Simulated assay, not measured.
Amino acid sequence: MQRTAGIVLTGLTTAVVTGFGVASAMVARRVIAAGRVHHSEVLPSSSPITVRLDRNAATGLPGRYGLEFDDGSRVIVGPVIGRETTDGSVMRSVIAGRVPAGATRTRFTGAAVTPADLGVDEAHLATTPSGAWRFDGETDSHGDSDSQGDADTGNDLDSDSDSDSAPHDGTWVVHTHGLGASPLATLRSVQAVQRTGVPSLVTNLGSAFTERRSGANAADVDRVVAAIDDAVALGARRVIVCGWSYGAALSLAAARLRPEVVQGAILISPMLSLRETVRHAATVAGVPRILVWSALGLLGSPLLARAAGVRGAVPVRELSAGLIPGLPTLAIHSPGDTTIPVELTRAVVPGSPSLELVEVAAAPHGLEWNVDPDAFDAAVRDWLDAR
């Protein structure tokens, strides 16, 4: 009987441990995944210069946005120009692109700045050895860009970019997007930086730029470091990292590895600590804290991380280290952010004298620029000018 009871107890223990491990792996996959795609319904419209969408928390927002369609095409839309009371739909103007014939759904995104807006032909983007996109700063007060549109798409580290004669005085900005976002999403901050005359690189996190979404990868920090090194090879004497959401944690981790050159950080809707952000999300969702810590431990193990679909360990400790003491940092965040609440950023302000927090109008996560581009651009310009 005792032996039988021992076998049963062992079996139950194994089942519990196995179940806990499976649950931990599921939580870990949620932490590092690109997230579920939220589509908006495209409704019939009588005009090719407008698009009618079902109304939800995003589609009725003020400002300019991007629409991504299943065939890979993109459309830029402007403000709401009409609301239909009978079906609750909203009509928005089409600024660039064309809604595909017969389209019935779209992904409503904040990626509303295109390479063309930066004076660059998307088919002829200059790239660096790490795969980063390169955007030169504007060279005159009329907003004309350098002749980068004619640049070769191959690696571009030629001596023409000598920082000694450049108006940006050797400063480059390296931009990194967040989980589930497109590298195109960073072009909003690239545009703000470009208008100050400062050139930019956009980090390639490992997926093709034509792919719109990517989850976390064990090599993400290394890729940001590689983009920083590319900027140095292009003549940068100082680099400012610019991270969106999860890209903020990546940028800070990379900055710690290149302290001799990184001299500032711009962080938008920032994840300042992976652990704190996940803990907060778990609390809101009612997920037991022990399961969260187990999932983060799993991601930090090269062997166990495979259960979450990651080859190699995600550097959880490095992505949870927070702000860098003494590093001049600008954070742009909105009180409307429910994904990474602004309270998490406000909480570190008293102990971070080198941090400047700019809060813009209420906007969902990552849409600060879209709701108030003037305030966003002014914050970036003023902060860069002060540097």
Rank of each mutant, 00 (worst) to 15 (best):
R92H: 10
A236S: 03
V380H: 01
A15L: 15
V198L: 01
H38S: 03
T127H: 15
R107G: 00
V262R: 10
W172N: 08
A295L: 03
G351N: 10
R195F: 00
P315M: 02
T4I: 15
G97E: 15
G119W: 12
A307C: 07
R74W: 01
A33V: 01
S45N: 04
F376E: 07
M271R: 05
D54A: 15
W133K: 11
R3S: 08
S130T: 04
T203A: 15
V42W: 10
L303W: 14
D164R: 11
E84H: 14
G351V: 06
P335E: 14
W172C: 10
T283F: 07
T106V: 12
E68N: 06
G366A: 11
V198P: 00
Y65M: 11
P167C: 04
R387N: 05
P335V: 10
F135G: 04
A208Y: 06
R55P: 00
S130L: 08
R213K: 08
G286D: 12
W172S: 11
P373S: 04
S301D: 15
A5Y: 09
V31T: 13
M1D: 13
E343H: 13
V287L: 10
V198F: 01
W383E: 00
P167A: 14
G235Q: 04
E343V: 11
E41G: 00
G170I: 07
W244G: 02
A321L: 07
W133L: 15
A378C: 01
S147Q: 08
L53M: 05
A96R: 14
A166C: 04
T139Y: 13
G66E: 10
A126V: 03
L67Q: 12
